[in-house]
Design a protein around this nucleic acid. Structure first.
Lengths: 342, 342
DNA sequence: GAAATTACTCAAAGCGCTTTGAATTTTTGC
DNA sequence: GCAAAAATTCAAAGCGCTTTGAGTAATTTC
């Protein structure tokens, strides 16, 4: 069913029907209701392409799917998407996931904007000098960055306080008496990872403690790397008595490594993990309950969608910056260091 | 840059330029090359909306995001999406994630198809009598179902052999000598969950063993429910000496419950989990390594995208049915039952 | 009661592309 | 060298919607 047919059915012009449906004021209330009812009855809904072509707005925002497998499409991503979609539904917007072609991300972004399939883009997982950000600002295409980059060009972003999170967690451990604290976080180059390392270092330096480069690990987030790296760390002498894990998945692996070495978690070796808050993996419910730096990635997604809508509505991107504090939630996986019973 | 401008630049008509770009045969080779080069140079790419309006094809397929939080948007979903996107990129198609409005899924589907934003739909997580399937076949809208339903109307689907997986796993455990085997799977009503229960029951009945309804648990997939339900199961006397877990997340919880009860995993209590194959959570890498029924959900996503493309190309849906066998991978979390050392 | 408002409604012009059917140029056959 | 065939190119008509600018009917004002 198309607009013309609906108009004919109703004995009205297309204009009137269109206006009635789009909430323009110059339509009689009774007429409007009649139209809405008929639309519902016939299941009419405007052809999105025609509509978009006419109004010049797409009604969708885009996000690029990293082709590269585990890299950035883990459980975080799905939570994040979920938050995005939740918010977007309130604005009747769709989320377009575009796969990157031939692993050439930049080309994929260009294609996305030049083919006018989205009104704006959400960029995730930035590096310190993120060329995508440079390109998009250059192209004047609306976007919001999840995370931060050092690219100077003004752009909208939302990030959590990664440095603060790791500084806080590290300080807490040091205050408990730990002297050898290690961190296993995401790959180098990504801003969040660098920021976390900064926070970690700051906490050590603040107390005049040395930084042992062997204790700083950058790897993919996974149960497996958590396990292997923690095993390696624990084989050093002296070994770390506390480990920061950059993700819950990593933490699961770290837990296992600690157990497999025969140490007691939260006593001989403490663990603090960063928790993006997954509905299916609850830190407080582990045994022992896991101390975490917590920040909901779903909420971030939701908020970012909101910010992007504001960008699209013309709000200057200079005004759109948010840093979310990260909560340190103390539970049983961290405590004062206790010498192994031997 | 629009078509007209590009044509003017080249001193050609829009028709010729359009044809050149779309690979029509009636364009001189030299001309075609000249056009392609210019398009590249000016960064021209057809306005997707206009193009779609003209040709009547969208170039995107849709998938509905369940609004309901943890229900169906877990780590499975992200893996599945990933597979979809990977395949779709080969066909230059996009994936449109549309959030369902007011939790009225059916309305969301209707909106999706009547507003012509997608060429086809992928439907996931069917129930035994799935009304979405009924509606979509009724509306003659192209779709592929991930999973199965009892709705008779012909439609394309791909499913894994859930019944077979659980039958096999259960049989294996029974053959090892277990007499009390429990299962913790997803929510009732979903086909996969029912099929798994069927498989489980078949294995018992085949051997003339009784089915204890207390040992059949249907719950959301999560670490937490795995933990709680397993604790409950293990508090019965006699308690199950083997537990089937419907997901890896559930299994993690079950592992913890077994440990917290002081049983040895793989000895006093065996566990077999269904593994959808996550890059960040590796069954073989756990301690003890986990016996699983394995089937990659990412591959399924990829294949389903392929099938949908075939449906769109006009292949009769009656021909498009696939059941994927599920592999039972024996590892250390399952073994013959051993009486607790007391 | 005529003029000025106000409240609706309408026909038609785009939005940027594809594609039809016709026109033009080039090539071929004899 | 000329007609016929083949190879290119073109102008114009949609695709289904929104929106402008104009028109008509209903209401108010003087």
């Amino acid at each position: 069913m198309k607009l013309k047919e609906l108009a004919d059915q109703l004995g009205l012009s297309q204009t009137t029907v269109s206006r009635a449906l789009n909430g323009y004021p110059e339509v009689n209330k009774a007429t409007r209701e009649r139209v809405s009812e008929a639309a519902l009855k016939f299941g009419y809904s405007a052809n999105a392409n025609a509509r978009r072509l006419a109004i010049g707005r797409i009604g969708a925002i885009g996000i690029l799917m990293p082709r590269d497998r585990s890299e950035r499409f883990g459980p975080h991503t799905s939570e994040f998407f979920s938050g995005l979609a939740e918010q977007l539904s309130l604005h009747e917007m769709d989320l377009l996931m575009s796969p990157s072609i031939n692993n050439d991300e930049l080309a994929a972004y260009r294609r996305l904007i030049s083919s006018k399939r989205v009104d704006g883009i959400i960029v995730t997982g930035p590096t310190l000098m993120d060329e995508r950000v440079a390109m998009l600002t250059e192209a004047k295409f609306p976007f919001v960055l999840h995370g931060r980059t050092n690219i100077a060009a003004p752009h909208a972003w939302l990030d959590i306080d990664n440095a603060g999170a790791f500084r806080q967690a590290t300080s807490h451990l040091l205050d408990l008496g730990h002297r050898h604290v290690a961190m296993i976080d995401g790959l180098k180059g990504h801003t969040f990872s660098e920021h976390r390392e900064m926070g970690y270092r700051e906490a050590l330096v603040e107390r005049g403690l040395p930084v042992d480069p062997r204790f700083i690990v950058h790897e993919r987030f996974s149960d497996e790397t958590g396990f292997h790296e923690a095993q390696r760390l624990l084989s050093y002498a002296p070994h770390p008595t506390a480990i920061l894990a950059g993700s819950m998945m990593t933490a699961l692996g770290v837990f296992r490594a600690i157990r497999s070495k025969g140490y007691e978690l939260g006593k001989e070796v403490s663990v603090i993990a960063h928790d993006d808050v997954f509905p299916y993996l609850n830190a407080s419910n582990m045994v022992p309950a896991m101390t975490t730096t917590r920040s909901s990635i779903r909420s971030a997604g939701s908020r970012i969608a909101e910010l992007l809508v504001r960008v699209l509505d013309g709000e200057p991107v200079e005004n759109i910056h948010e840093i979310w504090p990260v909560e340190l939630v103390l539970r049983q996986s961290s405590g004062p260091p206790i010498a192994p019973r031997r």
